[in-house]
Protein backbone atom coordinates (compact mmCIF):
# COMPACT_ATOMS: atom_id res chain seq x y z
CA UNK A 1 0.00 0.00 0.00
CA UNK A 2 1.55 3.35 -0.97
CA UNK A 3 2.33 5.78 1.79
CA UNK A 4 0.72 9.18 2.01
CA UNK A 5 3.80 10.96 0.75
CA UNK A 6 4.14 8.57 -2.20
CA UNK A 7 0.53 9.11 -3.06
CA UNK A 8 0.98 12.85 -2.88
CA UNK A 9 3.71 12.79 -5.47
CA UNK A 10 2.25 10.07 -7.65
CA UNK A 11 -1.21 11.52 -8.12
CA UNK A 12 -1.68 15.07 -7.08
CA UNK A 13 1.62 16.60 -6.18
CA UNK A 14 1.84 20.18 -5.04
CA UNK A 15 0.53 22.58 -7.64
CA UNK A 16 1.01 26.34 -7.60
CA UNK A 17 -1.23 28.04 -5.02
CA UNK A 18 -3.47 29.48 -7.73
CA UNK A 19 -4.83 26.01 -8.57
CA UNK A 20 -5.47 24.98 -5.00
CA UNK A 21 -8.95 25.29 -3.53
CA UNK A 22 -8.38 23.51 -0.24
CA UNK A 23 -5.07 23.08 1.52
CA UNK A 24 -5.00 20.93 4.67
CA UNK A 25 -1.62 21.13 6.40
CA UNK A 26 -0.62 18.89 9.30
CA UNK A 27 -4.10 19.07 10.73
CA UNK A 28 -4.95 17.30 13.97
CA UNK A 29 -8.34 17.61 15.58
CA UNK A 30 -8.93 16.64 19.17
CA UNK A 31 -12.06 17.35 21.11
CA UNK A 32 -13.56 16.53 24.47
CA UNK A 33 -17.05 15.22 24.83
CA UNK A 34 -19.30 13.81 27.53
CA UNK A 35 -19.93 10.10 27.95
CA UNK A 36 -23.68 10.62 27.86
CA UNK A 37 -25.48 11.54 24.66
CA UNK A 38 -27.50 14.10 26.59
CA UNK A 39 -25.35 15.32 29.49
CA UNK A 40 -27.16 16.79 32.48
CA UNK A 41 -26.16 18.30 35.79
CA UNK A 42 -27.67 15.21 37.46
CA UNK A 43 -25.49 12.76 35.51
CA UNK A 44 -22.45 14.98 36.09
CA UNK A 45 -23.03 15.00 39.84
CA UNK A 46 -23.58 11.21 39.85
CA UNK A 47 -20.29 10.72 38.00
CA UNK A 48 -18.50 13.05 40.41
CA UNK A 49 -19.98 11.07 43.31
CA UNK A 50 -18.68 7.81 41.81
CA UNK A 51 -15.33 9.51 41.04
CA UNK A 52 -15.75 8.65 37.37
CA UNK A 53 -14.32 10.67 34.49
CA UNK A 54 -16.63 13.42 33.23
CA UNK A 55 -15.28 13.75 29.69
CA UNK A 56 -13.39 11.69 27.19
CA UNK A 57 -10.85 13.07 24.77
CA UNK A 58 -11.21 12.01 21.16
CA UNK A 59 -8.37 12.33 18.67
CA UNK A 60 -10.57 12.39 15.59
CA UNK A 61 -7.96 13.47 13.03
CA UNK A 62 -4.21 12.95 13.33
CA UNK A 63 -1.68 14.97 11.35
CA UNK A 64 -3.48 14.95 8.02
CA UNK A 65 -2.19 16.85 4.99
CA UNK A 66 -3.57 17.02 1.46
CA UNK A 67 -4.78 19.56 -1.01
CA UNK A 68 -7.60 19.78 -3.50
CA UNK A 69 -7.24 21.56 -6.79
CA UNK A 70 -9.84 23.84 -8.27
CA UNK A 71 -12.54 21.96 -10.21
CA UNK A 72 -11.74 18.65 -8.53
CA UNK A 73 -14.32 16.36 -6.97
CA UNK A 74 -12.69 14.75 -3.96
CA UNK A 75 -14.26 11.69 -2.37
CA UNK A 76 -13.71 10.92 1.30
CA UNK A 77 -14.08 7.29 2.32
CA UNK A 78 -13.54 5.42 5.54
CA UNK A 79 -15.30 3.44 8.23
CA UNK A 80 -17.65 5.02 10.76
CA UNK A 81 -15.61 7.01 13.28
CA UNK A 82 -12.65 7.35 10.92
CA UNK A 83 -12.72 11.15 11.16
CA UNK A 84 -14.32 11.94 7.77
CA UNK A 85 -17.09 14.20 9.04
CA UNK A 86 -14.81 15.93 11.54
CA UNK A 87 -12.30 16.65 8.79
CA UNK A 88 -14.98 18.09 6.49
CA UNK A 89 -16.37 20.24 9.32
CA UNK A 90 -12.89 21.65 9.82
CA UNK A 91 -12.62 22.48 6.12
CA UNK A 92 -16.02 24.21 6.45
CA UNK A 93 -14.70 26.29 9.39
CA UNK A 94 -17.22 24.77 11.78
CA UNK A 95 -14.66 23.02 13.97
CA UNK A 96 -11.26 24.78 14.13
CA UNK A 97 -8.23 22.45 14.10
CA UNK A 98 -6.31 21.67 17.27
CA UNK A 99 -3.05 21.75 15.32
CA UNK A 100 -2.11 22.66 11.78
CA UNK A 101 -3.71 24.92 9.24
CA UNK A 102 -6.56 24.81 6.75
CA UNK A 103 -6.76 27.22 3.86
CA UNK A 104 -9.85 27.40 1.70
CA UNK A 105 -10.01 29.62 -1.38
CA UNK A 106 -13.55 30.54 -2.39
CA UNK A 107 -17.08 30.63 -1.03
CA UNK A 108 -18.00 27.44 0.79
CA UNK A 109 -21.44 25.87 0.86
CA UNK A 110 -22.21 22.88 3.05
CA UNK A 111 -24.59 19.98 3.12
CA UNK A 112 -23.18 18.10 6.05
CA UNK A 113 -26.22 16.12 7.15
CA UNK A 114 -29.64 15.98 5.63
CA UNK A 115 -32.09 18.47 6.98
CA UNK A 116 -29.69 20.10 9.39
CA UNK A 117 -29.84 23.85 9.53
CA UNK A 118 -33.58 23.70 9.40
CA UNK A 119 -35.98 24.61 12.18
CA UNK A 120 -39.09 22.46 11.87
CA UNK A 121 -41.37 25.07 13.41
CA UNK A 122 -40.52 27.66 10.74
CA UNK A 123 -41.67 27.63 7.14
CA UNK A 124 -39.46 26.50 4.28
CA UNK A 125 -39.18 30.13 3.14
CA UNK A 126 -38.00 31.33 6.59
CA UNK A 127 -35.50 28.50 6.83
CA UNK A 128 -34.01 29.33 3.45
CA UNK A 129 -33.62 32.99 4.46
CA UNK A 130 -32.12 32.15 7.89
CA UNK A 131 -29.73 29.54 6.48
CA UNK A 132 -28.55 31.95 3.79
CA UNK A 133 -28.06 34.85 6.23
CA UNK A 134 -26.07 32.60 8.57
CA UNK A 135 -23.93 31.52 5.62
CA UNK A 136 -23.07 35.17 4.93
CA UNK A 137 -25.41 36.11 2.11
CA UNK A 138 -27.56 39.21 2.35
CA UNK A 139 -31.33 39.39 1.92
CA UNK A 140 -31.12 40.85 -1.58
CA UNK A 141 -28.90 38.00 -2.79
CA UNK A 142 -31.25 35.49 -1.17
CA UNK A 143 -34.33 37.00 -2.78
CA UNK A 144 -32.61 36.70 -6.17
CA UNK A 145 -31.88 33.02 -5.58
CA UNK A 146 -35.12 32.13 -3.82
CA UNK A 147 -37.18 31.25 -6.91
CA UNK A 148 -34.34 29.11 -8.31
CA UNK A 149 -34.14 27.21 -5.00
CA UNK A 150 -37.88 26.60 -4.92
CA UNK A 151 -37.92 25.50 -8.56
CA UNK A 152 -35.01 23.13 -8.07
CA UNK A 153 -36.50 21.61 -4.91
CA UNK A 154 -39.93 21.40 -6.63
CA UNK A 155 -41.61 22.57 -3.43
CA UNK A 156 -43.62 25.56 -4.74
CA UNK A 157 -46.79 25.52 -2.63
CA UNK A 158 -45.08 23.94 0.41
CA UNK A 159 -42.62 26.76 1.01
CA UNK A 160 -44.95 28.70 3.30
CA UNK A 161 -45.85 25.67 5.42
CA UNK A 162 -43.97 24.84 8.64
CA UNK A 163 -41.27 22.30 7.85
CA UNK A 164 -42.73 19.84 10.36
CA UNK A 165 -45.27 19.14 7.59
CA UNK A 166 -42.50 18.09 5.16
CA UNK A 167 -41.63 14.50 4.35
CA UNK A 168 -37.99 13.44 4.74
CA UNK A 169 -37.60 13.55 0.95
CA UNK A 170 -38.88 17.14 0.81
CA UNK A 171 -36.53 18.06 3.65
CA UNK A 172 -33.57 16.64 1.74
CA UNK A 173 -34.56 18.25 -1.55
CA UNK A 174 -34.73 21.68 0.02
CA UNK A 175 -31.41 21.19 1.85
CA UNK A 176 -29.70 20.13 -1.38
CA UNK A 177 -31.29 22.97 -3.38
CA UNK A 178 -30.14 25.57 -0.82
CA UNK A 179 -26.59 24.19 -0.69
CA UNK A 180 -26.04 24.26 -4.45
CA UNK A 181 -27.67 27.64 -5.03
CA UNK A 182 -25.40 29.57 -2.67
CA UNK A 183 -23.00 30.17 -5.57
CA UNK A 184 -20.38 27.94 -3.95
CA UNK A 185 -16.82 27.77 -5.21
CA UNK A 186 -16.51 24.79 -2.90
CA UNK A 187 -19.35 22.42 -2.04
CA UNK A 188 -18.95 20.10 0.94
CA UNK A 189 -21.37 17.17 1.05
CA UNK A 190 -21.48 14.56 3.81
CA UNK A 191 -23.44 11.41 3.00
CA UNK A 192 -26.34 13.40 1.66
CA UNK A 193 -26.74 12.45 -1.97
CA UNK A 194 -29.53 9.94 -1.61
CA UNK A 195 -32.28 12.54 -1.38
CA UNK A 196 -35.67 12.47 -3.00
CA UNK A 197 -36.87 10.10 -5.67
CA UNK A 198 -34.89 8.69 -8.59
CA UNK A 199 -35.73 11.72 -10.77
CA UNK A 200 -34.43 14.16 -8.15
CA UNK A 201 -31.28 12.09 -7.59
CA UNK A 202 -30.60 12.23 -11.31
CA UNK A 203 -31.12 16.00 -11.24
CA UNK A 204 -28.78 16.35 -8.24
CA UNK A 205 -26.15 14.27 -9.98
CA UNK A 206 -26.42 16.37 -13.16
CA UNK A 207 -26.23 19.59 -11.13
CA UNK A 208 -23.05 18.41 -9.46
CA UNK A 209 -21.57 17.54 -12.83
CA UNK A 210 -22.40 21.04 -14.10
CA UNK A 211 -20.78 22.57 -11.00
CA UNK A 212 -17.63 20.61 -11.80
CA UNK A 213 -17.73 21.83 -15.39
CA UNK A 214 -17.81 25.38 -14.00
CA UNK A 215 -14.53 24.68 -12.19
CA UNK A 216 -16.17 24.41 -8.76
CA UNK A 217 -14.61 22.12 -6.19
CA UNK A 218 -16.63 19.42 -4.46
CA UNK A 219 -15.76 17.32 -1.42
CA UNK A 220 -18.04 14.32 -1.11
CA UNK A 221 -18.13 12.04 1.95
CA UNK A 222 -19.82 8.78 1.07
CA UNK A 223 -19.90 5.08 1.87
CA UNK A 224 -21.14 4.32 -1.64
CA UNK A 225 -18.19 3.17 -3.78
CA UNK A 226 -20.23 3.67 -6.94
CA UNK A 227 -20.83 7.34 -6.21
CA UNK A 228 -17.17 7.93 -5.46
CA UNK A 229 -16.07 6.19 -8.68
CA UNK A 230 -18.67 7.98 -10.84
CA UNK A 231 -18.33 11.48 -9.46
CA UNK A 232 -14.87 11.87 -7.99
CA UNK A 233 -11.52 12.55 -9.62
CA UNK A 234 -9.58 11.97 -6.44
CA UNK A 235 -10.26 10.45 -3.07
CA UNK A 236 -8.84 10.28 0.42
CA UNK A 237 -9.24 7.28 2.68
CA UNK A 238 -9.41 8.05 6.38
CA UNK A 239 -8.67 5.29 8.87
CA UNK A 240 -8.84 5.86 12.64
CA UNK A 241 -8.03 9.53 12.18
CA UNK A 242 -5.06 8.97 9.89
CA UNK A 243 -4.92 9.68 6.18
CA UNK A 244 -4.41 6.15 4.92
CA UNK A 245 -4.33 7.03 1.23
CA UNK A 246 -4.78 9.96 -1.14
CA UNK A 247 -4.92 9.54 -4.89
CA UNK A 248 -7.06 8.70 -7.92
CA UNK A 249 -10.60 7.87 -6.85
CA UNK A 250 -10.64 4.37 -8.41
CA UNK A 251 -7.29 3.44 -6.81
CA UNK A 252 -8.39 4.63 -3.37
CA UNK A 253 -11.74 2.83 -3.59
CA UNK A 254 -9.99 -0.37 -4.74
CA UNK A 255 -7.55 -0.19 -1.84
CA UNK A 256 -10.27 0.59 0.68
CA UNK A 257 -12.49 -2.20 -0.67
CA UNK A 258 -9.60 -4.66 -0.45
CA UNK A 259 -8.95 -3.51 3.10
CA UNK A 260 -12.58 -4.15 4.01
CA UNK A 261 -12.55 -7.45 2.14
CA UNK A 262 -15.88 -6.77 0.45
CA UNK A 263 -17.09 -6.96 -3.14
CA UNK A 264 -18.89 -4.15 -4.90
CA UNK A 265 -22.53 -4.73 -5.72
CA UNK A 266 -25.43 -2.64 -6.95
CA UNK A 267 -26.05 -1.17 -3.44
CA UNK A 268 -22.76 0.67 -3.82
CA UNK A 269 -24.51 2.96 -6.25
CA UNK A 270 -27.48 3.61 -3.98
CA UNK A 271 -26.58 7.31 -3.70
CA UNK A 272 -27.39 7.75 -7.34
Amino acid sequence: MPSVSEQSHAHAGYRPASDVSIKVENVSITYRTAYEKIPTLRTTLLRLGRREKLVREIEAVKNVSFQVEKGTVLGVVGANGAGKSTLVRTIAGILPPTEGRVEVVGRVSTLLALGVGFNRELSGRENVILGGLAAGLNKMELEEKYEEIVDFAELGEFMDLPMRAYSSGMYGRLAFAVAIHMDPDILLIDEALSVGDAKFRRKSFDKMRSLCAEDRTIVLVSHAFGSIRDLCHQAVWMNKGHLEMWGEANDVVDAYRDFLGVKEDRTDKEDL
Binding site: G93, P96, P97, G100, R101, V102, E103, V104, V105, G136
Partner: peptide, 18 residues
Protein backbone atom coordinates in the same frame (compact mmCIF):
# COMPACT_ATOMS: atom_id res chain seq x y z
CA UNK B 1 -9.77 35.43 6.25
CA UNK B 2 -13.52 35.51 5.90
CA UNK B 3 -13.70 39.11 4.78
CA UNK B 4 -10.54 38.89 2.75
CA UNK B 5 -11.14 39.11 -0.98
CA UNK B 6 -8.45 38.45 -3.47
CA UNK B 7 -9.01 40.09 -6.85
CA UNK B 8 -8.04 36.92 -8.67
CA UNK B 9 -9.23 34.13 -6.38
CA UNK B 10 -12.16 35.65 -4.42
CA UNK B 11 -12.74 34.72 -0.78
CA UNK B 12 -9.95 33.13 1.19
CA UNK B 13 -10.47 31.46 4.56
CA UNK B 14 -7.68 30.42 6.88
CA UNK B 15 -8.51 28.26 9.89
CA UNK B 16 -5.92 27.96 12.65
CA UNK B 17 -6.03 26.58 16.20
CA UNK B 18 -7.64 28.98 18.65
Amino acid sequence: PEAYRDDEYGERHVYLPH
